[in-house]
Amino acid sequence: MSDVLTIENLSYRRNWKTILTDVSLQLPAGQIIGLLGANGAGKTTLMRLIAGSAVQFKGQIQVGGQTALARRKAGVSYTGQLTDIDPRWKVGQIAELMAQLHPDFRMADFLQLADLLDLQQKQRFNRLSKGNQRKLALAVTMARRAQLYLLDEPFDGIDVMTRKAMLNSIVRWLPDTATMVISDHHVTDIDQLLDAVVVIKNQTIVAHAAADAIREGGQSIESYFEQFYEGGENDD
């Protein structure tokens, strides 16, 4: 199967500080991948780079074979895209804006997702709880028909029941040929959903393994991930 995402020798510095060094990664079509790493390891930065929200990097990033920024961006649906909206806007207005910005945005899908996740169309963004803001981010992200979906800590501050509804929306709405990357520092939130895990540590990718291959060795995804951070080392 062809690769949805190809990253070659990616390095990124911001304010004289190195955040990512020599990252290479290939993700095939039709998979759900867990991006694991301690806080500050560079998960969000990597997603911003892939999504085209951060641009001054060395190396190459291809999404669906496209490297040019505008074309690459068109293939990526990213939960971080809500960061620069006007917080006074209503849920429905935000969805309309997304529909204007992205030709692959499907309003009918959004309305179904919003309904499933219990979001009120008339509520203003700044009146939403943190959990509801996360739900909105998920709904607008999944309402697009993209090649690559990037979910950055989608379950942060989310209660158990809501998390189930969100996981359900992901399984229901993810197109067969699309690939999804989910970052989460509570691995157990998402482990049953994953085809593979990618571990970030010391500014680079240190492992990329199939989830069930890890379990075949009698290990949980959580303990597999933790072994990279044993010995009190931390990127914080």
Binding site: G30, Q31, N168, V171, R172, D176, D195
Partner: peptide, 17 residues
């Protein structure tokens, strides 16, 4: 396949396997 994936909250590839 998709229905089983939704019911069990796992991904489609795992169901297929």
């Amino acid at each position: 396949v998709r229905q089983l994936a939704i019911t069990l909250t796992v991904n489609v590839n795992t169901i297929q396997r």
